[in-house]
Nucleic acid binder design. Structure first.
Length: 413
DNA sequence: TCTGGGGTCCTAGGACCC
DNA sequence: TCTGGGGTCCTAGGACCC
C-alpha cells in the first residue's frame, strides 16, 4: 500500500509577504496588485477572506468588499525563493518530491518508515521542520493516492495534518461537495447539480456507464475520482519524475486598451523574446507558435501556425508572431496580447548543413545575450526594431525605463 | 464582479493520406 | 463522381488548477 503526502502551504503569498513585513500579521491582506488596477487577487489572508475576498476575484471587487485591507503587489521572485527553501526541507524526508505548483508538493513516502517512523509521526516532524526552517505554515494530507492526499490536505487547512486510512477513502470523500474533487470547477459542478448530484457519495453510487454517457471520457475519470482513485494521466505518474514542459507562453494585459501599433509591436517583441529565452533555458525548440488577442469586450482569439522546423530563435518566432498579428488584428483596441510556443521538441529536426550552421551560430549569440540580460536587465538588449528610440520598456531593474549601466539600450544584432 | 498569468488536458472539425 | 472509413496532424476553444 502506498503512502503519499500532499504538502500545501497555508496562504503562501500572504505568509511570505508577512516574513518581509511583520506589520501585516493579523491584518486583512490582499496580494495581487493595487485596488484600482486591472487584475485579480492572487492570495487573501484569512482576515480578508472573512469579508468574502478570495483568489481570482477582481482587485476592484476585493476593494469594495474590504477597503481596509492592505493591497500588496505580488513578488514572484520572493515566492520562488521561499518555494525552493521548502523544497529543500521536503527533500530530507523523501528522495521523491514533486513540486506540483509553487506552494504545493507531493512526497512519495512509501517505504520510509524505518527512517522517519509511521506516517503521522513523519508528518509532524516534517511540519515542524518546515515551520522552523522557513517560518511558514503548511497543511499535510496523507493517503494512498495523490487525489485523496490532496483533498485531505485541503480539509486539514489551516496548519493541520490529516491522514485517511487505506480503505476509508469512500467514507472520507462521500460527504464532501463534488466541488472538492480536483478538476471539478464551476461548470462541472453546475452540470452535476443539474443531475441532482451534490456530494461525492452521490457520484460514487452512480453507474460508470451513465457517467460516461453524460460526460464522455471525463465521466469515467470522475467515477474513479469519486472512489479515491488516481485514474489516468498525470495522476498515475510516479512522483518526482520531472518532465519537460509541454508549452511555454507569456502574455500581458495593458493598463488601458490600446490600438497604437507603437505600443502593440514592442510588446509582441518583448513577449516573444521572453518565450524564446525560456525555450533556450530548457533546451527546447518550438514547432508551433500561437498568438493570443483579447479586445475590450473580453472576446479572445488565438491563432496558431506550425513551422516546418522547430526553433528557439527570437527572430524566427517573432516573424511568425507578427505575421499572425497583422493577418488577424481587426484594428480595434487591444486589451491583451499573448505569445505561446507549443509542440516542443529537443532539437530543430531535419535541416541542411547550411541551416544547421546558421542555427548553431544563432544559438551561441542568443545565449550570450541571455547572459547580458542576466547582468544588465531585460531591457539592455533587444531584437525589437520597433522599439528603437520610441519605446523604453519599464522593467524591474530599470523602473524609469531609462538607459542605465552596461550596454546601450536597444542594441541591435 | 468587470474579469492576471502561467500552465495542463480534452474536444471537435477539417485537411490529408491510404 | 453520387462516395467509406481509419489514422494523424493541425487549429480553435474551453474547463480547470494555482
Amino acid at each position: 500500500m502506498k503512502t503519499i503526502f500532499h504538502v500545501d502551504m497555508d496562504a503562501f503569498f500572504v505568509s511570505v509577504e508577512r516574513l518581509f513585513d511583520p506589520s501585516l500579521i493579523g491584518k486583512p491582506v490582499v496580494v495581487g496588485g493595487q485596488p484600482n488596477e486591472r487584475g485579480v487577487v492572487s492570495a487573501a489572508s484569512y482576515e480578508a477572506r472573512k469579508y468574502g475576498v478570495h483568489s481570482a476575484m477582481p482587485l476592484r471587487t476585493a476593494y469594495k468588499l474590504c477597503p481596509q485591507a492592505t493591497f500588496v503587489n505580488g513578488r514572484p521572485e520572493r515566492y520562488r525563493d521561499c518555494s525552493k527553501d521548502v523544497f529543500r526541507v521536503l527533500g530530507r524526508f523523501s528522495p521523491r518530491v514533486e513540486m506540483a505548483s509553487i506552494d504545493e508538493a507531493y512526497l512519495e513516502m512509501t517505504g520510509t518508515q524505518r527512517l522517519h517512523g509511521r506516517p503521522l509521526a513523519a508528518a509532524h516532524a516534517l511540519h515542524e521542520a518546515v515551520r522552523r526552517e522557513t517560518r511558514l505554515n503548511c497543511s499535510i494530507g496523507i493517503a494512498a493516492s495523490r487525489l485523496v492526499a490532496k483533498v485531505s490536505s485541503d480539509q486539514a487547512k489551516p496548519n493541520g495534518i490529516l491522514l485517511v486510512l487505506p480503505g476509508q477513502e469512500a467514507a472520507f470523500l462521500g460527504p464532501l461537495d463534488v466541488r472538492r474533487i480536483p478538476g471539478v470547477g464551476k461548470v462541472t459542478e453546475k452540470n452535476l447539480h443539474a443531475l441532482g448530484i451534490r456530494k461525492v457519495g452521490d457520484l460514487a453510487r452512480l453507474d460508470e456507464d451513465f457517467l460516461e454517457e453524460k460526460f464522455g471520457k471525463w465521466g469515467l475519470a470522475l467515477a474513479g475520482k469519486s472512489r479515491g482513485l488516481d485514474a489516468g494521466g498525470w495522476y498515475d505518474a510516479e512522483i518526482g519524475e520531472a518532465e519537460d514542459p509541454k508549452s511555454i507562453s507569456h502574455e500581458h494585459t495593458f493598463g488601458e486598451d490600446t490600438a497604437d501599433v507603437e505600443a502593440l509591436e514592442p510588446l509582441l517583441a518583448r513577449l516573444t523574446e521572453m518565450v524564446a529565452r525560456r525555450l533556450r533555458e530548457h533546451g527546447l525548440f518550438a514547432r508551433t507558435v500561437q498568438l493570443k488577442l483579447r479586445y475590450s469586450d473580453f472576446s479572445t482569439y488565438t491563432r496558431a501556425h506550425t513551422l516546418d522546423h522547430a526553433t528557439q530563435v527570437d527572430t524566427e518566432l517573432l516573424a511568425e508572431v507578427r505575421s499572425l498579428f497583422h493577418r488577424n488584428w481587426t484594428g480595434r483596441p487591444v486589451r491583451l496580447l499573448g505569445v505561446h510556443a507549443g509542440a516542443l521538441e529537443h532539437s530543430e529536426g531535419q535541416m541542411s548543413l547550411l541551416e544547421q550552421d546558421k542555427s548553431d551560430r544563432w544559438r551561441k549569440a542568443l545565449t550570450a545575450i541571455d547572459r547580458l540580460r542576466d547582468k544588465y536587465g531585460e531591457s539592455s538588449v533587444s531584437l525589437a526594431a520597433g522599439m528603437k528610440g520610441r519605446f523604453r520598456e519599464r522593467t524591474h531593474e530599470n523602473p524609469a525605463g531609462l538607459p542605465g549601466k552596461g550596454p546601450k539600450p536597444d542594441q541591435e544584432l
